[in-house]
Design a protein around this nucleic acid. Structure first.
Lengths: 217, 217
DNA sequence: TGCAGCTCGGGCAAATTTCCCGAGCCGGAT
DNA sequence: ATCCGGCTCGGGAAATTTGCCCGAGCTGCA
């Protein structure tokens, strides 16, 4: 329970829901060795808070579709490669998990995990180890056994993100705003995704996204 | 701050994420007058826990869309009409909100609300009042400016048929051909269906059709 | 008889989609 | 060092669709 220095582990909490954040804080701080030194409620703030507090571990909830979560991971790691980032989200799609690790995350834990598993993961990544919850391990394992060139493999990160939000019901303008892009660019991606996947209709696109686990219905 | 009996308010927490649940518990219990008497992590358990503990307020996270959250609300209310249920979720679609209230919820609060707004809402519903967070009020207000009604019941035969084919991935021309209609008419139906259901996007339409069992994915 | 609602389509301005294009960036191959 | 290819980002312009209004014929119902 205390493989860590007497000073404990400092944590930066990133989540866009205030009350959720406050809940995590209480759970983590009740552990004794975990100290939440800062909170942030979006990717931009996350980077600022990281620079300001240099925490041992960043617990990052990219709950909203990947959004700029991957970007935040890259930004933080670009600044300090020793940063330990634990992604903590309700999503469990293999694409997302691989993207997160690819971006430099040290761990990936779903919210369906037991609290004890989460704090254990935090301690693990603080020690420099890689960590993931059991369900994520299963998802990755299953995924690695299927040589199925999923349709999603032909799509870039941006394209997947936009497809996810679109399939989730978001408007073109909403997506543009969320991702800070021009409406025109989102429209172009929309078209590009359709031609890449061969979908002739928005409805087909949604079904595609659903069958690929990009969105649930 | 204490319009409630000295015994305080007993709460049943329902959320499918253990750590989130534990976080809420801590936030609520730090209030003094709120006591979490039980937790559940799915709709079925929620009903059992309600029967066993008869809490003043059920705080229910129907995180998955449609899902069985509404069913849980109905079950609980069928058993005890005086039950107070506060829906607490990250979703803010008007359809969902109306469905929740229609099923018997007393309040609807999004996770982007301040923690204080959440505990305030709990106290409100405990007093028998209706409660909702500001963002939900805005969504409902905007929505109510075009009286939509429930959902599929307001659609005519033709409309349902066209929605089914559309959600199945059919092109406007294909639908027109299949039904022997002019493209223009199909377009008009498309538009009509959107305005009737309140869907702003084709993707939302597909999701709607799917949750209504009109199409499989 | 008259109202109400579904079905079917026309019209037309506004918005979006569809393609095609170039530019910057980066990583990998030569 | 250089080129190539892919991703990202947007402009432009024609084609299409949307959004919203309209009228007409049909039904069932009061």
């Amino acid at each position: 329970m205390s493989e860590v220095a007497a000073t404990g582990i400092s944590v930066l909490l990133v989540d866009d829901h205030p009350i959720v954040r406050q809940g995590y804080r209480r759970v983590l701080e009740s552990q004794g060795d975990l100290h939440v030194v800062a909170e942030a409620d979006n990717a931009a703030e996350a980077y600022g808070a990281f620079k300001a507090h240099d925490p041992d571990v960043v617990v990052l909830d990219i709950s909203m579709p990947g959004a700029s979560g991957l970007e935040a991971i890259r930004n933080i790691r670009a600044r300090s490669p020793r940063a330990r980032i634990l992604v903590f989200t309700m999503h469990n799609e293999a694409v997302l998990v691989k993207a997160a690790f690819g971006a430099g995350a040290s761990g990936f834990v779903t919210k369906s995990s037991e609290p004890s598993a989460v704090v254990h993961a935090i301690r693990s990544v603080a020690r420099g180890e890689r960590a993931m919850s059991d369900d994520i391990a299963h998802v990755l394992a299953a995924d690695s056994l299927s040589p199925t060139g999923s349709v999603l493999d032909q799509l870039g990160e941006r394209e997947i993100e936009i497809l996810r939000q679109f399939a989730g019901g978001a408007t073109t303008e909403q997506i543009a705003t969320h991702l800070n892009l021009s409406v025109k660019t989102v429209q172009n991606y929309h078209y590009l995704i359709k031609s890449k996947t061969g979908a002739r209709t928005d409805a087909q696109l949604v079904r595609l996204a659903a069958t690929c686990g990009l969105t649930r219905i």
